[in-house]
C-alpha cells in the first residue's frame, strides 16, 4: 500500500460559508498503479491530489503516503507533481528548468547533468536543453514539466490535468508517451482528468467522483492489459468501462441537472 486514505474530510472556510470539498473519502493505491481521478469541476479531485501531496491539510480522517503523513512524504521528496500549466521559469532554459529540483535538493553538478540528459530523453526532448520555454510548443512545455517532475526519481508521480489545455491530437500522443514512460519507470501515478477516454485509456484504476460534497461514487479496476496501443479505444472492453464511468458521473449529478 503506497497511498491510503481513510474517512478523509476537508472543509474550506470561505466568505460564503464552509465548502465541503471532500467528504468521507476512502481509497487505497498499490505500488505501480496508474490511478485516474475523474469528475466534474468542484468534485474535489484536485483537492484530493493536493492532500496526497501535503499541499492541503485535511480537516478529518487519515491519509498516509509511503507509510508517512503527506507532509513528511513531501519533505522526504516522495513524489513529483505536474500542474495544469507547465509553469516553466521563463528565465531558465529547458535544461535549467529540469535542473531546478535537483539544485534545490543538492545533487552534484555531474549528477544533475546526467539526470537532466536522462529524463529529457525519456520525454523525447533531447536536443532542446538550451532552448527557452517560449521557443517550445505547449505540448513540449508540458513534457518538459513532466521531465522536471521525474528528474529526482520519486516513486510517485502526481499529475493534475496535465494535458487539459492541449488539443486532442497532442493529447493522444502524450497519453501514449505517458504509458510508455510509466512502463519503463514503474512509478505509481495519480492522474486528475475530466476526459473519460483519457481516464480509461491510461488507468489501471479509475476513481469516479462527484461534487457537493466532493466524494467518491465509484472505483473501477480496469481489466485492460498494461500494454495498450491507441486502437484499444475501439475495443469492446474499453467502451464498456467508458460506459460505466459515464454512468457513475451521471449518478453523481442526479438532482443537479
Amino acid at each position: 500500500m503506497i497511498i491510503s486514505a481513510k474517512n478523509l474530510d476537508l472543509t474550506f472556510q470561505t466568505n460564503d460559508g464552509p465548502v465541503h470539498a471532500l467528504k468521507d473519502v476512502n481509497l487505497e493505491i498499490e505500488k505501480g498503479e496508474f490511478v485516474s481521478f475523474i469528475g466534474p469541476s468542484g468534485c474535489g479531485k484536485t483537492t484530493f491530489l493536493r492532500c496526497i501531496a501535503g499541499l492541503e491539510q485535511p480537516t478529518g480522517g487519515q491519509i498516509s503516503v509511503n507509510g508517512m503523513t503527506p507532509d513528511e512524504a513531501r519533505k522526504a521528496r516522495a513524489y513529483g507533481y505536474v500542474f495544469q500549466a507547465a509553469g516553466l521559469y521563463p528565465w531558465r532554459t529547458i535544461g535549467g528548468n529540469i535542473k531546478l529540483p535537483l539544485e534545490i535538493m543538492g545533487f552534484s553538478k555531474a549528477e544533475q547533468a546526467e539526470r537532466v540528459a536522462r529524463v529529457m530523453e525519456l520525454v523525447d526532448l533531447s536536443g532542446f536543453e538550451k532552448k527557452f520555454p517560449w521557443q517550445l510548443s505547449g505540448g513540449m512545455q508540458q513534457r518538459a514539466s513532466i521531465a522536471r517532475a521525474l528528474a529526482f526519481d520519486a516513486d510517485i508521480l502526481l499529475m493534475d490535468e496535465p494535458f487539459g489545455a492541449l488539443d486532442e491530437i497532442v493529447r493522444d500522443h502524450l497519453n501514449e508517451q505517458l504509458l510508455a514512460l510509466w512502463a519503463r519507470t514503474e512509478k505509481t501515478i495519480g492522474f486528475v482528468t475530466h476526459s473519460i477516454p483519457e481516464a480509461v485509456y491510461l488507468s489501471t484504476k479509475i476513481v469516479v467522483m462527484s461534487p457537493r460534497p466532493g466524494r467518491i461514487t465509484d472505483v473501477i479496476d480496469s481489466p485492460l492489459p498494461r500494454e495498450r496501443p491507441l486502437d484499444i479505444r475501439d475495443s469492446k472492453e474499453f467502451i464498456e468501462i467508458a460506459h460505466r464511468v459515464r454512468d457513475g458521473l451521471r449518478a453523481g449529478h442526479q438532482g443537479d441537472v
Binding site: G54, L55, Y81, F83, G87, Y89, P101, I104, F152
Partner: peptide
C-alpha cells in the same frame, strides 16, 4: 502554482 511547485520540492525560504 509556482509557489506550490517549490513546496513540492520542500524548498527553503532562501531557495
Amino acid at each position: 502554482m509556482q509557489l506550490d511547485l517549490l513546496r513540492t520540492y520542500s524548498a527553503s525560504n532562501a531557495q
